[in-house]
């Protein structure tokens, strides 16, 4: 019988597999521990970001027109629906302005500098998105120079889409909430229930159903489908009051001891052309 592999080839393959597995596990561990990647990697990423920025101009334009053509089909229906909502929003906006004003005066009287709800925003443009099976990350065109730091929340359109996972000098990466690695979507949230809030953290993302999961909830407060979910600000890095999504269903866990809440994320993770990074003002003077 012909030998397919010589013993030397087998040894080489095994050794290289061990090296590669070690490399994957090692660099994953290292990336979690450090805020910015080592100089060489950062330099390479900045350079690659520059090239990517140029290439993204035509593809983004094509993508945008394809999306607009898609949107055109249900514009009429949407327009009618939105018109009915707009009056409601105008009223809410006036009320919000008054409450904001009042809040500011009250904070001044209490000599509070910044609370969990104070944040400033940095807007950025998506220049690339990793074409990968896992760890779908966006590359945005703002980095260390704009004051971004690892862990900051990123919003797009309706709500939160992820957190900054790596900061280079002129660009950064955003880990999306659909990514199940530990730093991507473990943020503190609060659900505005009928008889009181329920606090907790996002524990997982179900990619097969496109839902965020908040498990191990023992609170007896009533939560029902449609309740709003927002960030609670606990932990300090992520400001309070960022919209996350709506409760889609509440189930019991496998042992029946605690509740598992499934959340429909508000943001559309597919079309992300511009993003806003929320920078908490706590500690900033």
């Amino acid at each position: 019988m012909r030998k397919i592999f010589s013993s030397r080839a087998v040894v080489t393959i095994i050794i290289s597999l061990i090296v590669i597995v070690g490399l994957i596990a090692g660099s994953n561990w290292w990336a979690k521990r450090t805020n910015t990647p080592p100089f060489f990697q950062r330099f390479g990423n900045d350079l690659a970001g520059g090239v990517s920025r140029i290439i993204s101009v035509p593809t983004t334009a094509i993508g945008r027109s394809a999306n607009s053509i898609g949107n055109l089909l249900d514009t009429f229906e949407e327009n009618r629906e939105l018109k009915s909502k707009i009056d409601e929003f105008a009223q809410d906006k006036v009320r919000l302005q008054t409450v904001e004003e009042e809040n500011k005066t009250l904070k001044n009287q209490l000599k509070l500098k910044a609370t969990l709800t104070d944040y400033k925003t940095v807007s950025a443009v998506t220049i690339s998105r990793s074409p990968t099976t896992w760890q779908s990350q966006l590359v945005i065109n703002k980095g260390l120079k704009s004051g971004l730091k690892k862990g900051m929340p990123v919003l797009s359109g309706a709500g939160i889409i992820g957190r900054i996972s790596e900061v280079n000098t002129t660009n950064s990466k955003v880990a999306l909430i659909s990514d199940t690695s530990e730093d991507a979507n473990r943020f503190a949230i609060t659900i505005k229930g009928g008889n009181g809030d329920v606090n907790g953290i996002v524990t997982n993302f179900n990619r097969e159903k496109n839902q965020l999961i908040m498990s191990q909830v023992t609170s007896e407060n009533q939560i029902k489908a449609g309740d709003l979910v927002e960030t609670s600000g606990l932990g300090g890095v992520i400001p309070a009051g960022l919209y996350v999504g709506k409760v889609s269903s509440v189930t019991r866990d496998d042992y029946g001891l605690s509740k598992r809440i499934n959340i429909e994320p508000a943001a559309d993770l597919g079309n992300v052309t511009t993003v806003v990074v929320a920078v908490s003002q706590i500690g900033a003077q």
Partner: peptide, 19 residues
């Protein structure tokens, strides 16, 4: 290599339309 990333970003709405 960069075109792949740009396509994913620019046409993400179509390419990652659930499911």
């Amino acid at each position: 290599l960069f075109v792949d990333g740009s396509l994913m970003a620019g046409m993400g709405g179509i390419l990652t339309a659930f499911p």
